[in-house]
Measured scan of single mutants.
Amino acid sequence: DIIVVALYDYEAIHHEDLSFQKGDQMVVLEESGEWWKARSLATRKEGYIPSNYVARVD
């Protein structure tokens, strides 16, 4: 699995987006352009995240 960590807070604009806080970790389900589908490890919610707001966890 690809795990990413949020570098900034993000508040969902569209209903299919996933809100998150800086430091939250998410599993990337699908990488497509600038918006990736991800699942929050904390809340288990799924949605689209801006890929430039996150960094991969090695």
Rank of each mutant, 00 (worst) to 15 (best):
residue 1 D to N: 14
residue 1 D to E: 07
residue 2 I to W: 05
residue 2 I to M: 10
residue 2 I to V: 02
residue 3 I to F: 14
residue 3 I to N: 05
residue 4 V to P: 00
residue 5 V to P: 00
residue 5 V to N: 04
residue 6 A to L: 00
residue 6 A to R: 00
residue 6 A to S: 05
residue 6 A to C: 06
residue 6 A to W: 00
residue 7 L to Y: 05
residue 7 L to C: 07
residue 7 L to Q: 05
residue 7 L to T: 13
residue 7 L to K: 11
residue 8 Y to D: 12
residue 8 Y to T: 05
residue 8 Y to Q: 05
residue 8 Y to M: 09
residue 8 Y to F: 14
residue 8 Y to R: 11
residue 8 Y to E: 07
residue 8 Y to A: 07
residue 8 Y to K: 08
residue 9 D to I: 00
residue 9 D to E: 10
residue 9 D to F: 02
residue 9 D to M: 07
residue 9 D to A: 09
residue 9 D to R: 06
residue 10 Y to Q: 02
residue 10 Y to G: 00
residue 10 Y to C: 07
residue 10 Y to W: 07
residue 10 Y to K: 02
residue 11 E to R: 13
residue 11 E to K: 13
residue 11 E to A: 08
residue 11 E to L: 09
residue 11 E to P: 08
residue 12 A to Q: 04
residue 12 A to N: 06
residue 12 A to P: 15
residue 12 A to R: 08
residue 14 H to N: 13
residue 14 H to T: 05
residue 14 H to R: 14
residue 14 H to V: 08
residue 15 H to M: 11
residue 15 H to G: 11
residue 15 H to P: 15
residue 15 H to R: 14
residue 15 H to D: 03
residue 15 H to Q: 12
residue 16 E to C: 06
residue 16 E to L: 11
residue 16 E to V: 10
residue 16 E to D: 15
residue 16 E to Q: 12
residue 16 E to F: 12
residue 17 D to I: 11
residue 17 D to V: 08
residue 17 D to H: 14
residue 17 D to C: 04
residue 19 S to G: 12
residue 19 S to F: 05
residue 19 S to V: 06
residue 19 S to L: 01
residue 20 F to C: 12
residue 20 F to M: 06
residue 20 F to T: 00
residue 20 F to K: 00
residue 20 F to E: 00
residue 21 Q to R: 13
residue 21 Q to A: 12
residue 21 Q to P: 01
residue 21 Q to G: 08
residue 21 Q to V: 14
residue 21 Q to S: 13
residue 21 Q to T: 13
residue 22 K to R: 11
residue 22 K to T: 13
residue 22 K to L: 05
residue 22 K to G: 04
residue 22 K to E: 11
residue 23 G to A: 06
residue 23 G to H: 03
residue 23 G to Q: 01
residue 23 G to V: 00
residue 24 D to A: 12
residue 24 D to S: 06
residue 24 D to R: 00
residue 24 D to H: 05
residue 24 D to I: 02
residue 24 D to E: 03
residue 24 D to G: 02
residue 25 Q to H: 03
residue 26 M to C: 02
residue 26 M to W: 01
residue 26 M to E: 00
residue 27 V to L: 14
residue 27 V to H: 03
residue 27 V to R: 08
residue 27 V to M: 14
residue 28 V to M: 08
residue 28 V to G: 00
residue 28 V to E: 00
residue 28 V to K: 04
residue 28 V to S: 01
residue 28 V to C: 11
residue 29 L to E: 04
residue 29 L to G: 05
residue 29 L to M: 11
residue 29 L to C: 13
residue 30 E to D: 12
residue 30 E to M: 07
residue 30 E to R: 04
residue 30 E to A: 15
residue 30 E to W: 06
residue 31 E to C: 05
residue 31 E to I: 15
residue 31 E to A: 03
residue 31 E to H: 02
residue 31 E to M: 06
residue 32 S to G: 13
residue 32 S to P: 07
residue 32 S to W: 06
residue 32 S to C: 07
residue 32 S to Y: 08
residue 32 S to D: 13
residue 33 G to W: 02
residue 33 G to R: 08
residue 33 G to Q: 13
residue 33 G to I: 04
residue 33 G to Y: 02
residue 35 W to F: 15
residue 35 W to E: 09
residue 37 K to G: 03
residue 37 K to T: 11
residue 37 K to C: 15
residue 37 K to L: 13
residue 38 A to F: 01
residue 38 A to G: 07
residue 38 A to R: 01
residue 38 A to T: 07
residue 39 R to D: 00
residue 39 R to Q: 13
residue 39 R to E: 07
residue 39 R to K: 15
residue 39 R to M: 09
residue 39 R to L: 11
residue 39 R to S: 08
residue 39 R to G: 02
residue 40 S to G: 08
residue 40 S to N: 13
residue 40 S to H: 14
residue 40 S to C: 10
residue 40 S to P: 05
residue 40 S to F: 06
residue 41 L to T: 07
residue 41 L to N: 04
residue 41 L to D: 04
residue 42 A to D: 15
residue 42 A to R: 14
residue 42 A to E: 13
residue 42 A to K: 14
residue 42 A to Y: 09
residue 42 A to W: 03
residue 43 T to H: 07
residue 43 T to K: 04
residue 43 T to P: 02
residue 44 R to M: 14
residue 44 R to C: 06
residue 44 R to L: 13
residue 44 R to A: 15
residue 44 R to H: 07
residue 44 R to E: 12
residue 44 R to F: 13
residue 45 K to M: 14
residue 45 K to A: 13
residue 46 E to L: 09
residue 46 E to Q: 12
residue 46 E to G: 05
residue 47 G to Q: 00
residue 47 G to W: 00
residue 47 G to T: 01
residue 47 G to P: 03
residue 47 G to E: 00
residue 47 G to M: 00
residue 48 Y to E: 04
residue 48 Y to T: 13
residue 48 Y to V: 10
residue 48 Y to F: 13
residue 48 Y to N: 15
residue 49 I to V: 12
residue 49 I to A: 01
residue 49 I to R: 01
residue 50 P to G: 03
residue 50 P to L: 09
residue 50 P to T: 02
residue 50 P to I: 03
residue 50 P to Q: 08
residue 51 S to A: 14
residue 51 S to N: 09
residue 51 S to L: 05
residue 52 N to K: 12
residue 52 N to C: 10
residue 52 N to V: 08
residue 53 Y to R: 08
residue 53 Y to G: 08
residue 53 Y to D: 01
residue 53 Y to L: 14
residue 53 Y to C: 09
residue 54 V to G: 01
residue 54 V to D: 01
residue 54 V to T: 07
residue 54 V to C: 06
residue 55 A to D: 11
residue 55 A to C: 05
residue 55 A to G: 10
residue 55 A to H: 12
residue 55 A to E: 14
residue 56 R to K: 09
residue 56 R to P: 05
residue 56 R to I: 10
residue 56 R to S: 10
residue 56 R to N: 14
residue 56 R to C: 14
residue 57 V to G: 09
residue 57 V to T: 13
residue 57 V to S: 08
residue 57 V to I: 13
residue 57 V to M: 11
residue 57 V to W: 06
residue 57 V to H: 09
residue 58 D to A: 04
residue 58 D to P: 08
residue 58 D to V: 02
